Simulated scan of single mutants.
Amino acid sequence: MRKDSRLSRMLHVLVHMHHQTSPLTSDQIALMLHTNPVVVRRTMAILKAAGFVSSGKGHGGGWQLAMPLAQITLLDIHKALKEGSLFTLGLTDEHNECPIEQAVNTAIDDVLQAAEALVLERFSQVTLDQLAGDQPPLGMPG
């Protein structure tokens, strides 16, 4: 199963935007991510609708940050991208009448839900300026 890397890829792009003095075009971002500009435009449009980036048309146009990285968390981007479950472990349902399978599924599901809650809580504490090196990582000495 292929991993969904949209979150990490968009975090990468947003931090690069922070370090740029001019907007980045979809073509430039596509080269950076080794993907198609159409995929970039589609994903960036999601971030634009959420208010994290803006875009300009024509010569000198492109994508740029609409707010400082310090105001954006990993959780914000995760939610904007409408990422599904953080984990791709699947529960089996081939023998859903089997009490052992039900117990296994319940145990795995409980653990995954607890782990996801912890990850999302941590995501809410990490701002993108920390990724850019503008702030020390949470829990690290300044």
Rank of each mutant, 00 (worst) to 15 (best):
D4V: 06
S5N: 12
R6G: 01
L7T: 13
S8Y: 07
S8F: 14
R9N: 14
L14D: 01
V15M: 11
H16I: 10
M17Y: 08
H18D: 12
S26I: 12
D27F: 11
I29S: 04
I29L: 15
M32Y: 09
T35L: 08
P37V: 13
P37Y: 14
V38F: 02
V40D: 05
R41G: 14
R42F: 04
R42M: 08
R42Y: 06
M44C: 13
M44W: 04
M44L: 13
A45V: 10
I46H: 01
K48T: 11
A50G: 05
G51P: 06
G56M: 02
G58Y: 11
H59T: 14
H59A: 15
W63P: 12
Q64A: 10
L65M: 04
L65R: 02
I72N: 11
I72T: 03
T73S: 14
I77Q: 05
H78W: 14
H78S: 07
K82Q: 11
K82V: 08
L86D: 05
L86F: 11
F87E: 02
L89S: 14
G90N: 07
T92I: 07
D93R: 04
E94W: 02
H95C: 07
H95P: 00
N96T: 11
E97W: 09
I100N: 09
Q102I: 09
A103N: 03
V104K: 12
N105L: 08
T106C: 10
T106V: 02
V111D: 03
V111P: 00
L112W: 00
A114F: 04
A115L: 13
A115N: 03
E116L: 07
E116P: 06
A117K: 15
L118K: 12
V119N: 01
V119S: 00
S124P: 04
S124H: 05
S124Y: 06
S124R: 13
T127R: 10
L128A: 04
Q130P: 12
Q130G: 07
L131Y: 07
D134P: 00
D134M: 06
Q135D: 11
P136H: 10
P137M: 15
P137F: 15
M140W: 08
